[in-house]
Amino acid sequence: MTDRPDHTDDVPVAGNEATPVPFNPVGAAQSQRLIEAPRSQLRDVWDQFKTHKGALFGAGFFVFILLAVLLGPLLWPLEPTFIDIRARNSGPSLTHPFGTDQLGRDILARMIAGGRTSLAVGLTAMALALFLGTLIGVLSGYFRRLDGILMRLTDLFLALPLLPLLLVMMLLFRDSLRAAIGPETGIFLLVVLGIGVTSWMPTARIVRGDVLALKEREFVLAARSIGTPARRMITRHILPNVLSPVMVSATLGIANAIITESALSFLGLGFPSDYPTWGSLLRDGTDYLQSYPERVIFPGAAISLTVLAVNYMGDGLRDALDPRIRGR
């Protein structure tokens, strides 16, 4: 309690969840103090989330990675583009904990800078794909009129081969975007847009299926009999109930986006070669795989562990958001 009332009469009984309240058949006056204060939903969710060990570890690791890429440059002030040619190809040491590459650039600094790009791409592309997928799924599931056309659109996108499409997009728009808003932001937008626009389809299909089933449930009919308009019907009754599949899609989506970005960088079509991402570090490392395997292992492990952490986190979050599972 933040604000303490002056008189003690109004203070709700603490820990009143276990207080037995006599069952009153028809409305005998109950003391106001026996009523539980409205429980904070966020608190319930957190309490349940805490019980999921994997999710807790995942969240911990994800926060660690986030802090590392955001605050890392303060603690490790080496520039990712600084070339110290005399120290090139050195293994892990105190001056370069992850070693250096063939030009003598510090790999730890490059990992930090690369992680920032990779995570930014992953999170934004996931958000975009999730938004598009949920929007199209809900619209086509809820409004019968739109169903046919939106689902055929989804099929159309599913039939597009992802990588060739991204390659064509890169080739077509890279230079004009680079000229318009600068090389890094231009490529970032292009990559995010490319990944987002080509990965919303599974979410849309899953959401549509769930909405179709939900629409026939009686509580939707009950809301209709109350006179709830379509948009509040969707936000109040449909969306919260499709949260579980959306959550799963989201966590898989982050992983997918990071991997697709890595693949693009790996093919040399993502960010410029001097601009590190986990994917491009991985590609650079493969040339020296036999002599310096750690150059592949570090970015590879970063990608895998982040993806794993996010998946566990999503798993825990999905459980925590479902009131039927909560409290078990």
Partner: peptide
């Protein structure tokens, strides 16, 4: 003016809403 009580009390209540929110929904709307 006109309301309905449904057959399956399990299916007619949104599992993600608290009782207070379920009962308050008509009040929110009207």
């Amino acid at each position: 003016t006109m309301q309905m009580v449904f057959q399956d009390p399990q299916a007619s209540l949104n599992p993600r809403m608290t009782v207070a929110r379920i009962i308050a929904e008509p009040l929110d709307e009207h």
